[in-house]
Design a protein around this nucleic acid. Structure first.
Lengths: 346, 346
DNA sequence: ATAATGGATGACAGCGCTTGCATAGATGCT
DNA sequence: AGCATCTATGCAAGCGCTGTCATCCATTAT
């Protein structure tokens, strides 16, 4: 004797529109319309269909739907890294906004590797996504071609500096300006002899843009960038700590040190704390990103806040509001700006 | 006169297999086989097809491919949050392993909200993914039904504690045991009067499991959990800092405080530092996760390291190695274990 | 030589949906 | 009553691939 548990809803599942249609006693097209809320449907029919779908536990096959309607409710998101919280926050902004609109993010992580970016963009495009959100504005020609060729909506985010023609809309901030703003602030605070501690800047293009902006502004205002210390590999607290130690070993007489980002700067902070270096009197410390952790340190970190979550949200919105029909186009580039946080370390 | 720029590869893009086939002078099936490396193909044909595809900048439509072959190279990943680095690291592990296999992650973020989890799982299933990787083992009946009903491979990750029947393979660690291990360690260090600072534990089930394990072990070993301070909202450094302040205001005579995780514990650390509370003599501090930041503090944080990146990798592997054919099944549950880090704060 | 074998390729029927067009009642209007 | 309008629904043709089966040579075996 076999006992069947009637409460188990769906045994296995090649469950198709046809099954729901049969159970509701209508045609497939009607079920399709009810489920997508289009066209005029009699209330009784709608209820019957919804009931049948519910009882069966029907989950529509979006692959088929997207294929038939050429439009896939998928949005490709390309980020360089998930090593620190920065891109995770961007991702959160993107996914939240997309979820509201019933879209989903397919993600790709490049590891700041351009060859990988090519593979990833191509793989993402294979899903005929509604759009692609990609970090940065510096891409290989192949990536540019791919993105330009397909009719996909493209949003480049995080960065707006550069002469490359835009592939689509842009949402971000000027890293050059952020670097310059910090230089201006530090000089105004009386610092003159500067050091820089960075991570692999050949890959992290935005970090380089910040440094360039910083150095240029420093030159303009009479500051001196007398020493740089690059640490191989990605940014991290430990890299920042080790980097500052190395920098000071080579060049002890610095007023202030600019770090490639807050992770690095927090490392520098800890180095100072552990070695009795008082901030900002003995040494000023400044970073970039405005991470929470920096603002919870006993002495708040001087840094520049980037609205990462907001950038993610806006980027997703740009995909959603793509002007397919006529109408006032929203601006091609959205500069979200940044905020200099005058903390207690510089 | 119109100037055509011959270097621009693809003008617009309803580019189909047929176009490539025509250019290469073969049939669609042949192109399909070449592109997927199956069946016997003459070298000359293969070269011609590859050349044509390359020149055209052809990107196959995976929607159509997946529909035709029932198998979508997409893997759903469901995580509760992207607020801290923990799940970002898991995600990194997952995406890296998937990329190696040519699969892609579609992500969903639940915000520890069970109703949202239902919607997300359902939406993910609509893409007929190769598998679903989901954080946690505690799900609503609806989610369990959805995941069980469809033929999808399921991997539950992060957690292995609990009596719920598994929905698929599991990769994680025992949070109860992790809590207990910390209790044992702290008692062994001579601490007796304990406090706890946590965030919204009704939503973060794993944090609660750690607390339960911690409290039970404490009782067994003669420690006393005399005070708890819950901070509303998600975990963060500032919440931990504020939580410890509140806890100590209500109960000044504590030996040690266990935090729901490292973010919270680092906040506690900063509170102590700012208020001249010496660790561990005046107060011992312990967390969970083994985040980098905790290990870079001037005094290394006492905590338990969870192999998050590894969990992500393993979870992805479980999807990849799903035994469709016969063969020795890999274990249903992989306990990745944990490592107690005896730092300098407890 | 003739048949048998196997390598290389093409034809074609779907995969599960969406959507334009056709159809059929039900109303409204003259 | 007779015809135009709607509203509600069904039919059927794809969307761009994959996979089965059939076909066609070029070899090799007999």
């Amino acid at each position: 004797m076999t006992i069947r548990d009637e409460t188990v809803p769906t045994p296995a599942s090649p469950l198709r529109l046809a099954e729901v249609a049969a159970r509701a006693g209508v045609s497939e097209s009607t079920v399709s319309r009810v489920l997508r809320n289009i066209g005029p449907i009699a209330e009784t029919t709608r209820a019957a269909v919804l009931k049948a779908a519910e009882e069966l536990g029907y989950v529509p096959n979006r692959l088929a739907g997207a294929l038939a309607s050429t439009g896939s409710a998928l949005v490709g998101v390309v980020v360089p890294s998930l090593d620190n919280i920065v891109f995770a926050e961007v991702l959160r902004g993107v996914t939240e906004k997309l979820e509201e609109a019933g879209l989903q993010a397919v993600i790709g992580v490049t590891g700041y590797d351009l060859a990988r970016e090519e593979r990833i963009v191509s793989a993402l495009l294979a899903w005929r996504p509604r759009g692609i959100v990609i970090a940065g504005i510096d891409h290989t020609p192949r990536v540019r071609d791919l993105l330009a060729a397909n009719g996909t909506a493209v949003v480049e985010m995080m960065d707006i500096d550069g002469s490359e023609p835009a592939l689509g809309r842009r949402v971000g901030l000027s890293h050059g300006a952020a670097g310059a703003a910090m230089a201006a602030h530090l000089v105004a605070r009386g610092h003159r002899r500067f050091g820089y501690v960075g991570h692999d800047i050949s890959r992290d293009i935005r970090a380089r843009k910040r440094l360039d902006g910083f150095a240029a502004e420093l030159a303009r205002r009479g500051g001196d960038l007398v020493a740089r210390q690059m640490v191989p590999g990605p940014s991290s607290v430990s890299a920042g700590r080790a980097g500052l130690a190395a920098l000071l070993a080579a060049q002890p007489d610095l007023d202030a040190v600019y770090f490639s980002n807050d992770d690095m700067a927090v490392g520098g902070y800890f180095h100072c704390e552990a070695n009795g270096i008082r901030m900002p009197d003995d040494l000023a410390i400044a970073g970039f990103n405005g991470l929470d952790i920096g603002q919870e340190l006993p002495r708040r970190l001087t840094t520049v806040r980037s609205p990462r979550y907001r950038i993610g949200q806006l980027a997703a919105e740009q995909i959603l509001t793509r002007q397919d029909a006529a109408g006032p186009a929203s601006p091609a580039t959205i500069d979200v700006g940044f905020e200099l946080i005058a903390g207690e370390t510089a």
